[in-house]
Amino acid sequence: MTDIAFLGQGHMGAPMAGRLAEAGHRTTVWNRTAARCAPAAERGALTAATPAEAVRGAEVVITMLRDGDSVAAVLFGDHGAADHLAPGAVLVEMSTTGPDAVHALRGKLRADVALLDAPVVGSVPQATGGELRILLGGAEADAERVAGVLAVLGSVDRVGDLGAGASAKLIANLVTIATFSLIGESLALGDRMGLTADRTLDLLERSAIGGFVGRVRDRVGAADVPTRFGLGLAEKDLALVLAAGADPAGVAAGAHKPFADAVAAGLADRDISAVIADMRSRVGSADERRAL
């Protein structure tokens, strides 16, 4: 049994912490909105009122938060966790923050606290089922210390030294998020040319992205889609890709614009698939186009 503190109980953090508690690890959870700790608590986790309280005595501390600013606030802000981390503790940073944020975090942490960056590939179903792919960066010896904990959450792919996990996650998310943008653009163009959505989706299912389209087709245009990957988080991740050095005139930038437009339209809390309907809403029909 390992003493674990889990900071962040959002769509991903809650099922992950619940799995750790059910696996027999002494798991203490914290979230800025305390009510979100309830699902993990129902599965055996303890709850803490502050990050500082949560990490006292923890051998492994996991952060699963929105972005680098959130991680910094939870660790170094009021009632922050950093000063209360036990000597020898391992901090496993599983948020999507980018490599620069990971290295900045290493520079601020005490030397006697180990740091791993371990963002994940997968969404709520994979977090619930313990089937996440964990992209881990950091020292091999530190990775071995948390192997049993991470095995409860999914499979570990150690991709390199510190920061490599965060870098790999940006590449993975660029492909996933840009594909949603590509589906949206294809459907919007099909709308303008008079093709039905089903016909366009049938064509896409027989294309190079066919497997992906088949997996998300039931979410295209559906009402009340549960949020598996928040649209606002997708926009944030593409902004990180651009900040990391992607071509400002390339695919990442082109994919980012419709997500930024959707966030501006108030869709940040919706599932990522909502960008498709938003893109289609911004173009005219075939008849309207012929009238121009």
Score class of each variant (00 low, 15 high):
282 R>D: 11
263 V>Q: 00
174 L>V: 10
209 I>L: 05
241 V>F: 03
190 G>L: 12
61 V>A: 00
124 V>K: 01
258 P>C: 07
33 T>R: 06
249 A>Q: 10
248 P>W: 13
225 V>N: 06
188 A>C: 13
196 T>L: 14
4 I>K: 03
3 D>N: 11
54 A>V: 02
281 S>C: 11
29 V>E: 03
215 R>K: 13
190 G>I: 15
148 G>P: 10
251 V>Q: 09
130 G>T: 11
59 E>Y: 13
52 A>K: 06
251 V>I: 15
104 A>V: 09
187 L>C: 07
288 E>Y: 01
268 A>L: 06
182 L>M: 14
143 A>C: 13
54 A>C: 00
7 L>F: 05
289 R>D: 08
110 R>G: 05
279 M>C: 07
148 G>C: 13
84 H>V: 14
141 A>M: 07
118 A>I: 12
155 S>I: 03
164 A>P: 13
159 V>K: 06
100 D>K: 11
100 D>Y: 02
114 A>P: 00
113 V>C: 06
236 K>R: 14
175 V>R: 11
239 A>I: 14
7 L>G: 01
34 A>I: 09
77 G>I: 14
56 R>Q: 10
69 D>N: 09
238 L>V: 10
136 L>G: 00
202 D>K: 09
68 G>E: 01
60 V>S: 05
49 A>V: 08
148 G>M: 09
181 S>G: 15
218 D>C: 15
264 A>K: 06
120 V>C: 08
126 Q>F: 12
143 A>M: 08
29 V>H: 04
50 T>Y: 03
8 G>F: 07
246 A>M: 09
226 P>Y: 12
27 T>W: 04
95 S>C: 06
25 H>N: 08
290 R>E: 13
73 A>V: 00
1 M>K: 08
143 A>Y: 12
91 L>N: 01
223 A>N: 15
188 A>M: 06
183 I>T: 12
216 V>F: 02
251 V>N: 02
58 A>L: 11
129 G>K: 11
60 V>A: 10
63 T>I: 00
91 L>D: 02
242 L>K: 09
99 P>R: 08
236 K>E: 07
16 M>H: 08
109 L>N: 08
286 A>C: 08
117 D>M: 07
292 L>M: 11
84 H>Q: 03
206 R>S: 12
3 D>R: 15
5 A>Q: 01
212 F>A: 12
29 V>M: 02
